[in-house]
Write a protein that binds this DNA or RNA. Structure first.
Length: 319
RNA sequence: CCUCGCACUAUGG
């Protein structure tokens, strides 16, 4: 049973939702642990409905179930429901508090995030990191820096968060020095450095970080596409988008990067092709954001009729 | 023994 559970988890972690579902449905006894795994699997993908349904169907819940459901809400931006759940939970752990803290930060409620942090009974490294990123994401560079300096322990995540905080505030030198002071680095920290250069107008350095990387994630490719587009090298951006497909799986963000690059130069055909190909070849479900990019692209390229038609036929209510 | 919270990429704020 334990190894079946481990297998279920492996599917869930890799985003193989359908395999996980099949396995879960075939399991004779559904333990609390396997329910929790499915709950997390639904929560991390765009299946909030399934998550809530499973949560309601479950016979028993433990702290992990509550926390997982809480995270499912916050990952879908449902702060209200998350709060409700948080308040009605029979018990809370550090993870519960940290989840809420992050949710507040993401909804631009820094004050609430800070107040949660202050009301926590104890703090661990994850909680400190969450507060550090809360400051960083809200543009409070000085507070972030102070928190970083005052932390008694730091890990890779602390450093990476601080690095991008500097980068986003145009402090490339500070970002570089954080990067250099790191005792170990992983793909995420390299990506952070790559976009630090790109955001601060150093395309050449960004490119050399990219080519020096051992393995590149979608995020690395997306950063490079954007870096080219921001430097008006749209042809290179488009070429990079296609090149990515050989080694990585483009995602929803990749398409946005690509479409925005096309908007820059009014490259309607390339954008159209990318949109269609992402839907057909990668089974991407286009979001509102994708449609609004496409409409922007068509309209700016002079295809007013096509833009109108897209507005009329898209599966979203126009705003 | 297996399951939960924090860092990188788009847009917006």
């Amino acid at each position: 049973l334990v190894s079946w559970t481990a297998l279920l988890n492996a599917f869930a972690q890799r985003g193989e939702l359908h395999r996980a579902e099949k396995l879960f449905e075939g399991m004779k006894e559904r333990t609390l642990v396997s329910c929790n795994i499915m709950l997390a699997a639904y929560g991390q993908t765009s299946c909030l409905e399934q998550a809530t349904r499973l949560f309601q169907l479950m016979q028993r819940w433990d702290l992990i179930s509550w926390n997982t459901m809480l995270a499912a809400y916050t990952q879908h931006g449902r702060l209200g429901e998350a709060k409700q759940l948080f308040d009605s939970m029979p018990e809370r752990s550090l993870a519960s508090w940290t989840t809420m803290l992050g949710a507040c930060a993401q909804s631009a409620r820094l004050e609430e995030a800070k107040s949660l942090f202050d009301r926590m009974q104890l703090w661990d490294l994850v909680a400190w990191n969450a507060m550090l990123s809360a400051y960083a994401q809200s543009g409070y560079l000085e507070e972030a820096r102070r928190m970083f300096e005052s932390m008694k322990e730091r890990n890779l995540i602390s450093y990476t968060a601080m690095l991008s905080a500097y980068a986003q505030n145009n402090q490339l030198w500070e970002a570089m020095s954080v990067f250099e002071s790191m005792e170990c680095r992983n793909q995420v920290s390299w990506n952070a450095m790559l976009s630090a250069y790109a955001e601060n107008g150093h395309l050449q350095e960004a490119k050399s970080v990219f080519s020096g990387m051992e393995d590149r994630s979608v995020a690395s490719w997306n950063s490079l596409v954007t870096a080219y587009a921001h430097n008006k090298r749209v042809a290179s951006a488009i070429r990079t988008f296609h090149e990515m497909k050989q080694t990585a799986e483009p995602d929803d963000i990749s398409l946005v990067c690509m479409l925005r690059a096309c908007i820059h130069t009014g490259n309607v055909d390339a954008g159209r092709q990318a949109f269609v190909s992402m839907v057909l070849d990668y089974r991407l479900q286009p979001t509102k954001q994708h449609y609004s990019c496409m409409i922007d692209l068509l309209a700016k390229g002079g295809y007013i009729v096509d833009a109108r038609e897209l507005i009329a036929t898209m599966p979203f209510v126009p705003e």
